[in-house]
């Protein structure tokens, strides 16, 4: 599987990343190199490997207990923009 300019622009759009025309060609190449590695991995015969769901590692269950995190002020202070207790973000898409 290979991607082209169209896919790269689409992924950039989904991630809200600005990509100028000059960068697109380079990114197409990067993407395809990475995808190429996965294509190679696909060649490995995994028929004898257990399904991931049968893996010995399972997600642990946590007890339903509340713990208060003390550093929320610090987290807010590190925000690029805030308004009192709120994080402030640029305007969201307009409603009809």
């Amino acid at each position: 599987m290979a991607v082209g300019e169209k896919e790269v622009r689409h992924v950039a759009q989904l991630a809200r990343l600005e990509v100028d025309d000059g960068e697109v060609a380079a990114l197409v190449e990067h993407f395809n190199t990475i995808l190429g590695h996965f294509e190679r991995l696909k060649e490995v015969d995994t028929s004898s490997v257990a399904d991931v769901l049968d893996n010995a590692v399972v997600t642990p269950w946590r007890d339903d207990e509340v713990r208060i995190w003390e550093n929320r002020d610090e987290a807010l202070a590190q925000a690029p923009d805030r308004d009192g207790d709120y994080f402030r973000v640029p305007q969201i898409l307009e409603e009809a």
């Binding site: 308004d83 207790d85 402030r88 305007q91 969201i92 409603e95």
Partner: peptide
Amino acid sequence: LVHPSADGRLAGARYSLVD
């Protein structure tokens, strides 16, 4: 999301607040 425009709707707000 909290939209601090006059009528509380998205339209017109220049920024939004997140909780």
